[in-house]
C-alpha cells in the first residue's frame, strides 16, 4: 500500500502550506483534481522525490521513501509534456528506462520493438521526439514507464491536449496496467478520465 502521511510542503513565499494525506492499494487508481495552483503537480513532485517535504512521510509497503532519491523510489512519472530527452531517439529514450546505461539484452530490445508495435508506433524507433505528435510522444513516455516495471505510476495530466484516438489508446494502456496491479496516482482535471480510471477521487 502507498500511504501519504501528513505530507507538508510550502514554497518559500507561500503563506499556508499544503498538507497531503491519503492511501492507495496496489491495482487501484486515485485521481487528484483541483484548480490550477491547488498543488497537484507539487504532490506528484513530492511523491517522485523531486521536492522535499517539510514534514510527514511517504510509505510504500510500510517502508519510508522520504530518504530515498528519485531513482531509488518504486515509481515512474509521466507528465503532460517534457517526458522525453529531445536529443535522443525513441528507442534510446525507452532503453534508458530499462537500463540507465543503455546496456540492453536482446530480450530488452525485443520488448522495446514489441512495445512500440503494441502502442501503434512500429517503425518510429529511430525518430526523434520532436518528429512525433503530442499523442505519439505520450505513448512513448507511457511505454517507457511501463517497461520500467515500477509498481507505481504517477500521471500528471498525461492525456491533456491529445486527440480522442490518442486518448482512447492511452486510457486502454492505463486500464491494462491497472489490471496487472500497477498503482496509479492520476492528477487530472478531466472528469471523463477520472470516471474511467479512478477508484477514488481526492479534491485539493
Amino acid at each position: 500500500m502507498l500511504e501519504v502521511r501528513n505530507l507538508v510542503f510550502a514554497y518559500p513565499d507561500q503563506e499556508s502550506p499544503w498538507n497531503f494525506h491519503f492511501s492507495v492499494e496496489p491495482g487501484q487508481c486515485i485521481a487528484i483534481h483541483g484548480a490550477s495552483g491547488s498543488g497537484k503537480s507539487t504532490l506528484m513532485n513530492l511523491l517522485a522525490g523531486f521536492l522535499e517535504p517539510q514534514s510527514g512521510d511517504i510509505l510504500w509497503r510500510d517502508e519510508s521513501l522520504r530518504k530515498r532519491a528519485p531513482w531509488q523510489r518504486p515509481m515512474t512519472s509521466v507528465f503532460q509534456e517534457h517526458n522525453l530527452f529531445e536529443h535522443l531517439n525513441v528507442e534510446t529514450n525507452i532503453g534508458l528506462g530499462i537500463h540507465p546505461g543503455l546496456k540492453l539484452t536482446p530480450e530488452d530490445q525485443k520488448a522495446i520493438k514489441q512495445g512500440l508495435h503494441n502502442v501503434g508506433l512500429e517503425g518510429f524507433g529511430k525518430r526523434l521526439p520532436g518528429d512525433l505528435s503530442g499523442g505519439q510522444r505520450q505513448r512513448v513516455a507511457l511505454l517507457r514507464a511501463m517497461l520500467r516495471q515500477k509498481p507505481i505510476l504517477l500521471l500528471d495530466e498525461p492525456l491533456t491536449g491529445l486527440d480522442s484516438d490518442a486518448r482512447d489508446l492511452l486510457r486502454q494502456l492505463l486500464l491494462q496496467a491497472k489490471a496487472r496491479g500497477t498503482l496509479i496516482v492520476l492528477a487530472s482535471h478531466d472528469k471523463e478520465d477520472r470516471k474511467l480510471l479512478a477508484d477514488s477521487v481526492h479534491r485539493l
Binding site: 530499462i98 537500463h99 540507465p100 520488448a111 503494441n118
Partner: peptide, 17 residues
C-alpha cells in the same frame, strides 16, 4: 500488449539490472 504483460509479471526490484 503481451510482451508488456510478460515483462510486468517478473518485475525487477531495482532500476538497474
Amino acid at each position: 500488449m503481451n510482451s508488456l504483460a510478460k515483462r510486468q509479471q517478473h518485475a525487477l526490484p531495482s532500476h538497474s539490472r
